[in-house]
């Protein structure tokens, strides 16, 4: 196995103000890009890897080429985490999403650097990171509010108290936007977990660095392990297994590839999966790329009835 040479980060050297000192010649410690399952960072069980290359021809890393088994492990983790996460107080979920934003803010430079390695200009990379942080803040705020927007007390004709509230649909598999490797990722994960679901995400194949580093952000954010599981690899290979999986409740897909959309819906019918297709969303546009309706898409409406005692006589005259 040939050792990949990873492009040395230029960012820190130029910005840390140490130019005047003669920098010590030091061998840089390279990062191993792992996947994120159940709050742990394993490499893929398959042992497979791939080497994405940027436009300049530089090799980015030896990235895990995740397998069907990784998907199954991740779904199991997500299912195990679902009960706890969905039962968290909405306020608490909001705090944790806010914490994710804080952690992302703190590691902004690293993400800008990775986005630049993946061919973004510095300006565009900075913009994408900023938007991603703001998006997390946006959904952090929704965690304890969307229920009020989408619920109802229903004035039934019989003597019953009747109300409808949204509840998370369960385990959601997400094939993240392949181009906007950080903003797209954040934009599809945030509404799903804000709504109390747990998820398994496949990041961008060609630009996988941010999704792995974002897993590190999640891991330092009080987010319980298993709520978000992140895999790298080929969406075309993993998506069919996700759509087939009988313990997955919904699947999110963001590309325009109609054959894949069809495949996901067909296979998903095996257990009546909800298929959410976001192929026309511009994630850079706040008006289009964020709304409580994204949260609502991965919710079920539960209606509860209870009788109201109606023993005549004592009518209030107030």
């Amino acid at each position: 196995m040939a050792k990949t040479t990873i492009k040395k980060s230029s960012l820190h050297i130029s910005e840390n103000g140490l130019e005047n000192h003669k920098p010590e010649k030091r061998l840089e410690v390279l990062k191993t890009y792992k996947i994120y399952i159940g709050g742990q960072f394993p490499r893929t069980e398959s042992g497979r890897y791939y080497v994405p290359v940027n436009a300049k021809g530089e090799k980015l890393a030896n990235v895990c080429l995740s397998s069907r088994k990784d998907v199954r492990d991740a779904v199991e983790s997500a299912r195990n985490a679902f009960g706890g996460w969905s039962a968290r107080a909405a306020f608490n979920r909001g705090q944790i999403l806010y914490r994710i934003a804080e952690m992302l803010e703190g590691r902004k430079a690293q993400f800008v650097d990775e986005l630049m390695q993946q061919d973004a200009s510095r300006a565009k990379a900075g913009h994408e990171v900023n938007l991603s942080i703001d998006r997390l803040i946006y959904y952090a705020g929704w965690c304890d509010k969307y229920q009020q927007i989408f619920s109802a007390v229903n004035p039934v004709a019989s003597s019953h108290f009747n109300f409808s509230v949204p509840e998370p649909t369960g385990v959601v598999c997400i094939i993240a936007p392949q181009n906007d490797s950080l903003l797209g990722l954040v934009s599809v994960i945030a509404p799903v977990i804000a709504g109390g679901n747990t998820c398994v995400v496949v990041g961008s194949y060609a630009k996988p660095l941010c999704c792995v580093t974002f897993a590190e952000v999640l891991n330092s954010s009080d987010l319980p392990g298993g709520v978000v599981n992140i895999l790298t690899g080929k969406a075309s290979e993993l998506a069919p297994w996700m759509a087939d999986h009988m313990d997955v409740n919904a699947i999110v897909y963001c590309e325009k590839d109609e054959a894949t959309q069809k495949m996901l819906k067909e296979k998903g019918s095996a257990n009546v999966k909800r298929a959410l297709i976001y192929d026309k969303v511009n994630w850079y546009d706040d008006a289009a790329g964020q709304s409580p309706y994204f949260i609502n898409d991965a919710q079920e409406i539960k209606t509860t009835w209870h009788p109201i005692e109606n023993i005549g006589g004592a009518g209030s005259k107030y």
Binding site: A152, N154, P155, V156, A157, S158, H160, N162, S164, T169, G170, N249, N271, V272, R274, E300, I301, K302, T303, T304, W305, H306, P307
Partner: peptide
């Protein structure tokens, strides 16, 4: 489940949403 009846059962009303979770549909 999409509809839960407590101390009652099989009640329906036009104002009350009805429908399922999981393989009971969407």
């Amino acid at each position: 489940a999409g509809v839960v009846w407590a101390n009652t059962f099989n009640k329906f009303d036009p104002t009350s949403p009805f429908g399922g979770y999981k393989e009971s549909g969407y």
